[in-house]
Design a protein around this nucleic acid. Structure first.
Lengths: 226, 226
DNA sequence: CACCCAATGTAAACGTTGCTAGCATTGTAT
DNA sequence: ATACAATGCTAGCAACGTTTACATTGGGTG
């Protein structure tokens, strides 16, 4: 008789926020408002329940209005993801800025920043890498922002190479391994996989530093960073 | 919300009510048929367009029939993901079986197997880690299958420790780093991110081995495997 | 200033989805 | 043979993404 959690009757909406500046017919910057609404929603909701209609509601416009600014829902998500990649790059840069001058340590902290961003904005992160936007090439701005973020890692690696801390000629390979490592951890976190594996007791930042350190020094026994 | 219609409690593998064969009205094993239909669909379609109604259509039953066997769409996806984790574990074990006896090499090949599975079944992989199933704890069988897959890595690491190739006492940390690394690469692949970063020219297996090797030996200069 | 038209909003509708309610049919245990 | 639990069906709801046709606006041109 366990009465499993039945899906609750579709949330009775009534979240209308007649966000209308001075009763204007024209909104002013609906495009921006929609993105903002999406970002706000993602702060504490699954990406699933991010619907175009809900965004329109929050912006105080009709359900068809968004189509004047975006060609599809995927297009909105692409814009949202683009912002996400900018935030991701910023998070990495911030973490680097707070690190010592040692280039290897800075490289590692870039990874930590990456994971911290994903942990701080899990829903946003899921949009960035979720299944709705597999074909990134259809959204050039998105691809550009993603490349920019990736570039932070490339730069950090370049600094290491220049300082002689990493072998030259390997940048791409190292960058891929680094990206994979931090993205993997971030992804496991935002997918709730860590709890399944019972890692939830550790602090995220420590886990991130562990993984980054392992990547740098190797798992076999490298006693490098840290 | 009377909710008398609960899915029948699922027996652990041992017993099963004799599966009824054909019959025009009763399907026989709808549960199985729905999962199979989902797997077939995922072979060449996005997880997005995997709808319960479509599965019902393919199984030749009405749109409400699936609810006799699953309590929600998420429940179906959980079953599908569960199969996925079994396949993932099998892929790792297969790759290990084809590797030399050296435990470190076997550990690395487990990672390669992981990535190859994700590359071979991207849509399935996306279901396994996608946003629909964030709360895995609601699906105990799923969590169990995921843990089983994780266990392949743990075992491989254990072998390394016993052979003295990895320091003892670090298993969890090493396992997390390894899982993060391979999952990250797999995830980047199945999210189409590699094309954005212009890695598409390389063979997946080589990329996987690169990352796995980097994880083992460290990026700083480890000249380990390969 | 008057006008026009492109940009931007609205309303209504279509088809699809997840899910529920109530009823029909079946296989099996009594 | 019959009762009953399991399992199917039809119909319907609310929400969604998207399109179409129409309404309102404001900036640029006469």
């Amino acid at each position: 008789m366990s009465t499993l959690n039945r899906a609750p009757r579709r949330r009775a909406a009534a979240t209308q926020r007649a966000r209308k500046p001075r009763g204007a017919y024209h909104h002013g910057d609906l495009r921006r408002a929609l993105i903002e609404a999406a970002l706000a929603l993602l702060k504490d909701h699954d990406p699933r329940q991010l619907s175009l209609r809900e965004l329109a509601r929050r912006a105080g416009v009709s359900t068809a209005a968004p189509y004047r600014h975006f060609s599809s829902k995927a297009d909105v998500l692409a814009a949202v993801a683009e912002e996400g990649f900018r935030g991701l790059a910023a998070a990495m840069r911030a973490q680097i800025a707070a690190a010592p001058a040692d280039p290897l340590a800075r490289f590692r902290e870039a990874g930590v920043g990456y994971v911290l961003f994903a942990h701080a904005h899990p829903a946003h992160y899921r949009v960035m890498f979720g299944p709705e936007l597999v074909e990134k090439s259809a959204h050039p701005d998105l691809a550009g922002a993603a490349l920019d973020a990736f570039d932070v890692l490339i730069q950090a690696i370049g600094d290491c190479v220049r300082a002689g801390a990493l072998p030259a000629g390997d940048t791409q390979r190292v960058a891929l391994a680094a990206w994979a490592g931090v993205h993997g951890l971030a992804s496991l976190i935002s997918a709730g996989q860590l709890e399944v594996l019972q890692f939830h007791t550790r602090r995220i930042e420590d886990l991130a530093r562990d993984v980054a350190t392992a990547l740098l020094g190797g798992v076999t026994g490298g006693s490098d960073g840290r």
